[in-house]
Design a protein around this nucleic acid. Sequence first.
DNA 1: TCACATCTAAGTATTCCTACTCATGCAAAA
DNA 2: TTTTGCATGAGTAGGAATACTTAGATGTGA
Lengths: 217, 217
Amino acid sequence: MKKLTKLIIADDHPLFRKGLVDLISTISQFSICGQADDGIEAIDLIKKNNPDIAILDINMPGMNGFDVAKKIKSDKLAVDIIFLTMYNEEELFNKAMDLGVKGYILKECAVKDILDCIISVSEGKHYISPVISDYLVNRSSILNINENQKSGIDKLTPTEKQILQLIAENKTSKEIADKYFISIRTVDNHRMNICNKLSIHGSNALLKFALENKHLF
Amino acid sequence: MKKLTKLIIADDHPLFRKGLVDLISTISQFSICGQADDGIEAIDLIKKNNPDIAILDINMPGMNGFDVAKKIKSDKLAVDIIFLTMYNEEELFNKAMDLGVKGYILKECAVKDILDCIISVSEGKHYISPVISDYLVNRSSILNINENQKSGIDKLTPTEKQILQLIAENKTSKEIADKYFISIRTVDNHRMNICNKLSIHGSNALLKFALENKHLF
DNA sequence: TCACATCTAAGTATTCCTACTCATGCAAAA
DNA sequence: TTTTGCATGAGTAGGAATACTTAGATGTGA
């Protein structure tokens, strides 16, 4: 016999909430012990009903999902969090990860995925929306389009790439020069040539570029 | 009736390869049309046998998995790639994503996960090892330990956080000063105070910190 | 052989950031 | 009320990166 898992749901769209409730109700293992319109209500419900899992919409009036997750963390409430969101932005996803969220699914996901997520989390596992995986993957194609065409790392010579690598590793021009037994002025010239080839300008432009794109070379 | 999916396997550990072959052979849908000891052999096999999926170990002598994936991409070979690796490092994972790899699993994964991965990819979907998801999630705890205790962003005043934010957005001290109608010297002082509170030193140290940690504030 | 790319190096100037010290005004807390 | 924290501003110094120019050495391919 399965252990009963108690859930609360917080979402400011009543219709969506109803759909979710209906979906979860089809599984006898789950019991919904509360529904909230916003984050503040959600926190109240969690403290009152002590659910195992809280399904939180990120975008809510007043306290949003992140605020609720922070509150749960700071108050050390024993509840696992699932974020349910419309946005698949990397920033949001990373923030959620940093808050220790157990599940992260997009509203556009298939019903099966949403159920899978709740089941996984109820079993103590993590679950991240397949679309997010796809997103992480597809990031490559976007990046490749942007960067193969726009930034043209391809245009760099081997030496230039090597130097760019070291810049990304926090090395100064002097350190690079010492490492290869060449003059700082040579490194300077390479830096300038790289800047020109990549069409980047301004203070510390190369460092910024190198840090943001080091996964590409 | 299911369509037959042809695979090739490249791994420099014969024993592991045998285990994998035996595992895959239990599923009639799959047919292994080649095995390779290293990357060069893998490329040959792919060109000769035209498989649907190539399962590549990242760590191989000569051409490694990344080299093979690059070659596949540059030669526009119509084969989906699954990376099978011992290392769950974020850098490697991100690089794999950027190469358009369809599946990414760790050797430590359960047999079921490995099969799930192959099946998913054969169905045209992506599959990323659950351990990687866990890794992405657990990164938070590591980060939180490292950064709540070590870096102490908490110690910063609101103004200092605001300035740090702008630094992360590529603003120079002058731009920040202009934006808030304050003197550059004031911004300078804030920068120095931030550096001291975070115990960071060196050229462009703040910019580096801001870029690497902007997801935290 | 000639042209071209690349690596090497130096000159000069400017801007930006770091580092440290000193000082004033304000508001909240002790 | 005095102290403390914070925001504000300036002086001075030096290190580092950008920006632009010129130029010798080397190797490759046409």
